[in-house]
Design a protein around this nucleic acid. Structure first.
Lengths: 326, 326
DNA sequence: CAATCAATTAACAACGTGGTTATTCACGAG
DNA sequence: CTCGTGAATAACCACGTTGTTAATTGATTG
């Protein structure tokens, strides 16, 4: 590979002059600059960012750490974050394990954006991250964590969904998803807030997959009366639930309404375009990119930020049918 | 950040000794080695890969260049390639524009895996890539290109789909997708090969999106009799077409059979699990990763490789209905 | 004509490693 | 006692840059 020394030799100047010329420094005569640039071009010179980064201490590299690439939401976030970072002239490297995160640190990535599940799944990571020099931003937490983070207010999102359904007259609402206490509580609280009396019968535990959502509805307890509306805790669950509902002969939204969590574009292409609630992934990515870059630049900013969920109305919610027997 | 010099000072040895100790060289006494390692650990030493790479000339970085991250197939391939590269101890950096590819080269990425559309969309890229030192592998081409590449034999895939439909008795087959000559010809040839007489009426031009597939069927020419089977040229088109068919009251597969291109896992979650044909993305990623690493290591290998498409039978194909009036 | 000054360029240290060569040291053989 | 000898370590160069400092010009001025 041709280096600035090669160019210097060819041009009959010192390599430091070449360096300045390539960086368009005012310390070099215009004519010399032009001549050097021309020679560099003709020799097919490509600057070596490794060397530059070694001396400058900055790599313009940001790691994105996540866990399960199976859920389309991660693919989506990856795209969005890549876009947002590219706009700020940063490159993105993906990591899906603590080992890879470690390597990013050894590569001297300037910053790390880490999906909350990755740290919660590897608890020792949290303290390590705090010690490292790479600026770390955790995104997608439900609860505050001892690192700069972006929180998704899932509580507010669930509340929004419940209220929305309530405004359509629904009084018995099923909740399909994790039986994790915090989420269940958020739902039950929201229901109460909406002036309804929640019942544990309204909970439909499900794995966070299409299968999970499908089975939760398809093989639900037969003794529990069918709610007039459901909230699915993520995109896959919701799609699975929709499939099961249709198979069971329910019309959506005439017989049963449905709201899904996670604002993914392809939710509109389901059998019935699905009304969704959740953070805008574009907003998340934009905020995370700007925030982490600010952290790198030493600019002040909030250590915690909450992304407000938004509700996107589509066709899967309608007025509650009469069979609502409350 | 702590460097080997800091460790050397603390340990009272020269920094070259520390370097050797960290690399477990036999030139250092075992006891010294242990002592140095202990000090390094206690000081929270993290090796600097930038510096190492500068001297070694290798970065263990591989760029993945692609175009449209909107189609889930790209997200899928990204995941798969990441997985395959991580297994070989390489990191992956995403690039979606020629500029970003350029930067990868300046970062001295050891190799590049580039999706064919990216080079075909930016023709000047091809010759540049040839000149660069990063080993380049183009994947997903339809035709041979003057660079090492992995070809998807779409011709064979289409032929496989046609044959499969033929074996179920279908005699009028619709082809939904690009009106690009090469693909259309592949289809028409395959039909002829299967002993049928193709007609231009069988072509349903469509943009490569869900909308495209939907509109192609929903607003098809009313004077053309409905084929008994369709082939959709990619995953989105196929899903759109399926939606349209169902909306028009056709039962799939009883009234109309459907095969989609692109073996994406989520095709099984469509309204009707869709039979697909296409390259296995896992195989593509594994081959590409191994091949590009071999190229980096200077190992010999084929400049061109063809991935044979495979057909995954699901529920969307059945025997042709009687209305087949040929 | 020497001194001064601005403009230009050259020389060099540094970044943190990995390798190569030189030095030191202890020890045993002659 | 001296001379290898081998083990262990130190010293140094290179990788390709950037930034700082020193040197070299050519012109200007008193």
């Amino acid at each position: 590979m041709v280096s600035i020394k090669d160019i210097a030799e060819r041009a009959g100047v010192s390599y430091s002059t070449v360096s300045k010329a390539l960086n368009d420094s005012p310390l070099v005569k215009e004519e010399t600059k032009r001549r050097i640039l021309e020679i560099a071009r003709s020799m097919g010179y490509q600057r070596n960012l490794l060397a530059r980064h070694l001396v400058s201490g900055r790599t313009r590299l940001i790691g994105f750490g996540l866990v399960n690439l199976g859920n389309p939401i991660f693919a989506n976030l990856t795209i969005q974050l890549h876009r947002a970072l590219a706009a700020l002239d940063y490159r993105m490297v993906i990591a899906i394990s603590p080992d890879e995160i470690d390597l990013l640190n050894q590569m001297r990535a300037d910053g790390l954006v880490i999906w909350a599940d990755l740290v919660s799944r590897h608890p020792h990571l949290m303290e390590e991250l705090g010690r490292w020099q790479a600026k770390t931003l955790v995104i997608g937490t439900d609860e505050p964590v001892p690192l700069p983070h972006v929180r998704f207010d899932r509580r507010a999102g669930i509340a929004k969904a419940v209220e929305y359904l309530r405004s359509f007259g629904h009084r018995r609402i099923g909740f399909i998803g994790s039986s994790q206490e915090i989420k269940v509580r958020a739902f039950l609280d929201a229901v109460q807030q909406a002036g309804l009396t929640p019942s544990l019968d309204w909970l439909y535990p499900a794995e966070p997959t299409f299968e999970g959502g499908y089975r939760a509805i398809r093989y639900a307890r037969p003794d529990v009366p069918m709610p007039t509306a459901f909230i699915g805790l993520n995109n896959l669950i919701t799609k699975g639930a929709l499939r099961a509902l249709l198979e069971l002969g329910y019309r959506v939204p005439q017989d049963v309404s449905l709201i899904g969590y996670d604002n993914l574009p392809d939710m509109q292409f389901a059998e019935v375009p699905i009304t969704t609630v959740g953070p805008s992934l574009e907003e998340v990515a934009d905020f995370a990119a700007h925030r982490v870059v600010d952290m790198i630049d030493g600019k002040p900013g909030p250590d915690a930020h909450v992304i407000e969920p938004i509700l996107i109305p589509r066709a899967s919610v309608e007025r509650a049918p009469d069979r609502d027997d409350t």
